[in-house]
């Protein structure tokens, strides 16, 4: 079973603070949809509105065209994985996975739990307590609990952020494979660019309760809709000269009309990123095949510019 998700003019306010501002969204069946944004921009609140733990102040949540705004979370048939996994500490792994089945009075519980455990490679730990297993295993148990009753949609709130860097990488590709396997709708919230790039069919960039742009990650990088998106998306903020934006890849170094004084450089594999400032003080990042000395002048030309209606403002403080 897989479902379509629609948000219509959803607003959520806590007292005077409006966290979600008039958001509309359509997630297609079987899509891996990523919501990317700096922390504190309402990403988790948005998930809670979809899953029904929170009620929108105004607007509607529709699942497969059906208005579920007033429906309690236990009747929406969605699955959610929290950032901290929220495994029930008083139950062992088996009972954690079986819990949604018990709540839905489903039959063949043992068989269903065993099947999903096998799929996620956690058959050996079914009898263990949840505090006896590793972070990676906890994440799989949380996923297994989400998968076991075949929900209409998966909602994942930064499920990889508590894992070690190495485990996180393999868990990420596993998650992608799992979604392609299940062909189910995933809504995945993260502040991590790499996760958004690797996982999302489409990525929605959320800032201060509003979507800045909804597009595949490549398009966000190449064709940001606003200067804010250009600034936020990518390993480095977009460069700006004369109010026009460009990526490090769009510049050729050596000669050209622009120049910077080099402040520092970092090696990234076999290339170097060079950080410097123009005469008017704009911060610029460029790519260089060889190490350049700090304090020297570097001339460059830009092959393509992106122009925006809004003015660039730094997102660094928000990240």
């Amino acid at each position: 079973m897989t479902a379509k998700l629609e948000l219509r003019n959803v607003t959520k306010a806590y007292g005077k603070t409006t966290v979600i501002k008039n958001l509309s969204l359509l997630v297609e069946e079987g899509e891996f949809f990523v919501i990317l944004g700096p922390s504190g921009t309402g990403k988790s609140t948005l998930l809670k509105l979809i899953v029904g733990i929170e009620q929108p102040t105004s607007g509607q949540v529709l699942i497969d065209g059906k208005d579920v705004t007033a429906m309690p979370p236990n009747r929406r048939n969605l699955a959610m994985v929290f950032q901290n996994y929220a495994l029930y500490p008083n139950m062992n792994v088996f009972n954690n996975i079986a819990f949604p089945l018990k709540m839905h009075h489903s039959g063949n519980i043992t068989q269903k739990v065993r099947e999903v455990a096998e799929k996620l490679n956690i058959s050996e730990i079914l009898g263990k307590r949840v505090n006896q297993i590793s972070g990676g295993q906890q994440q799989r148990v949380a996923l297994a609990r989400a998968m076991v009753r075949n929900p209409a949609m998966f909602l994942l709130d930064e499920p990889l952020s508590n894992l070690d860097a190495r485990v996180r990488f393999s868990a990420r590709s596993e998650l992608k494979r799992l979604q392609q396997d299940l062909k189910q709708t995933f809504v995945f919230v993260t502040h991590d660019q790499k996760e958004a790039e690797a996982l999302g069919d489409r990525v929605a960039v959320l800032n201060q309760g509003q979507f800045q742009q909804i597009a595949p990650y490549k398009e966000l990088y190449e064709e940001p809709a606003t200067a804010w998106v250009g600034d936020f998306v990518g390993d480095f903020p977009m460069n700006f000269v004369d109010g026009k934006g460009f990526r490090p890849e769009w510049a050729n170094i050596g000669s050209g009309p622009y120049s910077i004084i080099i402040d520092s450089s970092e090696s990234f594999g076999d290339i170097y990123y060079v950080f410097g400032r123009t005469e008017s003080g704009e911060h610029i990042v460029l790519k260089s095949p060889k190490l350049l000395s700090i304090g020297s002048q570097l001339k460059f030309s830009v092959t393509r510019f992106k122009e925006f209606r809004d003015t660039p403002q730094s997102t660094v403080g928000n990240v």
Binding site: K48, V51, G52, I53, P72, P73, N74, R76, L78, A79, M80, F82, N84, A86, Y88, P89, F99, P100, M103, H104, R145, R149
Partner: peptide, 10 residues
């Protein structure tokens, strides 16, 4: 989250 998780789990 545990209570919220339980609600989502049905």
């Amino acid at each position: 989250q545990l209570e919220l998780q339980a609600r989502v789990d049905g």
